[in-house]
């Protein structure tokens, strides 16, 4: 069996392996069980929840 075949088979085994490790890591850290916190991650004090951004088109008609 040549080196490339070993590399290919190794890759095929490594990728699901890494995925399983990542899943285990995530569940240990509670990443899968933090819905409220995780859903709020795109927001912070500077751009909080409840405030729309990027409202640049058609303003004249929309706001007086």
């Amino acid at each position: 069996m040549n080196v490339l075949a070993i590399l290919m088979i190794g890759g095929v085994l490594a990728v699901p392996g890494v995925a399983l490790v990542a899943l285990r890591w995530a569940s240990h850290r509670g990443e899968l069980n933090l819905p409220e916190r995780a859903a709020l991650l795109p927001f912070d004090e500077e751009e909080p929840v409840g405030r729309a951004t990027d409202q640049i088109l058609n303003r004249q008609s929309a706001e007086s």
């Binding site: 004090e45 500077e46 751009e47 909080p48 929840v49 409840g50 405030r51 951004t53 990027d54 409202q55 640049i56 303003r59 706001e63």
Partner: peptide
């Protein structure tokens, strides 16, 4: 006309009364 373009901007509403604004939105939500 002042708060719309980009809310990182320091428009009047944001600078002084941020807490109130957020409370207001939370109530609406």
């Amino acid at each position: 006309m002042s708060v719309h373009s980009d809310n990182r901007g320091q428009s009047g509403l944001d600078s002084g009364e941020a807490t109130d604004v957020r409370d207001l939105h939370a109530a609406i939500l």
